[in-house]
């Protein structure tokens, strides 16, 4: 296997590393299963997989506290699993069933969990950015010390509303971490073909927002950056930008023919930079886990995903009267 960068972190515990391995593997196996169910026609419409980007949400979530909020775009399955939402409920929403987190009415792009402080799941590119700042606005108003993670991609980073939001977030010192998940492609358009400057985090400078770029294929680096960003927000210093450089292995959505990049480019990242393999190496090389232990985790994750898929297939379609519910809240 090609040389892979290994972060030397002597103070990292076996338990912590194993946890990241488990969380990232769950996302990858879940997404592979979702891709399979899509291929079988059990999942319809748009389905945007997170494969390749697992270290981003797992690293960021590792630094959060209970009550912190998160909101993202339509590529949202990983975020939901990382914040502890039930894999079965997510998968059953993908199949459009009664047991789905939105009772089958939201689908892949629109899921929410009040309990886990996950505010969607938004299908309009960039719309979640002011919404996330609004969540932070509410927290500041209530003086509850919470922080909101507002995730968006390199594509959304060119939306005007992002900069309207940067301005107000900085003006009002909102406790929001803007996480730019730069997977280098806005649908099929490479960043260099759509974006005038390569370092998206520097765009905060115009508004006086601090930020940094971080290697999104290294879960420990992401976690360290997340801790720093959260501390900045909790200290009342206003927003922070984290540009997490990552890579999406699969297409933009399931119907992406991938003509805009070479198979070799994808293969090279998979072989040299894969975030899960990286943690696997750390675990094995550091003597934190044996091959057998990792195999057992793999098996365990596979069982969780299969169970989620079974639930998603067996859960009935929503009752027809669900068509007419949840349009208005009772006054």
């Amino acid at each position: 296997m090609a040389a892979r960068k290994t972060t030397k972190k002597s103070n990292i515990s076996a338990e912590e590393l194993t946890g990241y391995y488990r969380d990232m593997l769950l996302i990858r196996r879940f997404e592979e299963k979702a891709g399979q169910l899509y291929g079988m026609g059990l999942i319809g419409g748009f389905c945007h997989l997170y494969i390749g980007q697992e270290a981003v949400v797992v690293g960021l979530e590792a630094a959060t506290e209970e009550g912190d909020k998160r909101i993202t775009s339509y590529r949202d399955h990983g975020h939901m699993l990382a914040c502890g939402m039930e894999p079965g409920g997510v998968m059953a929403e993908l199949t459009g069933r009664e047991g789905g987190l939105s009772k089958g009415k939201g689908g892949s792009m629109h899921m929410f969990s009040k309990e886990k402080h996950f505010y969607g799941g938004h299908g309009i590119v960039g719309a979640q950015v002011p919404l996330g700042a609004g969540l932070a606005f509410a927290d500041k108003y209530k003086e509850n010390g919470r922080v909101t993670f507002t995730y968006f991609g390199d594509g959304a980073a060119n939306q005007g509303q992002v900069y309207e939001t940067f301005n107000m977030a900085a003006l009002w010192d909102l406790p929001v971490v803007f996480v730019i998940e730069n997977n280098q492609y806005a649908m099929g358009t490479a960043q260099k073909r759509s974006t005038s400057t390569p370092d998206l985090w520097t765009r905060g400078a115009a508004f006086g927002i601090a930020g940094e770029a971080v290697d999104g294929m290294d879960v420990l680096a992401v976690k360290a950056a997340s801790e720093k960003a959260i501390a900045h927000c909790r200290a009342g210093k206003g927003p922070y930008i984290l540009e997490v450089k990552t890579y999406r292995y699969r297409g933009h959505s399931m119907s992406d023919p991938a003509k805009y990049r070479t198979r070799e480019e994808v293969q090279k990242v998979r072989e040299e930079k894969d975030a899960i393999e990286h943690v696997r190496d750390l675990l094995l090389q550091g003597g934190h886990a044996t091959e057998d232990k990792l195999k057992a985790i793999d098996k365990e994750i596979k069982a969780v995903v299969n169970q989620a898929a079974d639930f998603a297939r067996e859960s009935p379609e929503p009752a027809l009267d669900e068509l007419w519910t949840d349009i208005y809240a009772e006054a």
Partner: peptide, 11 residues
């Protein structure tokens, strides 16, 4: 958008 987010957040 910020106001809608604030409404999601309980205001």
């Amino acid at each position: 958008g910020i106001a809608v987010g604030a409404a999601f957040g309980g205001l």
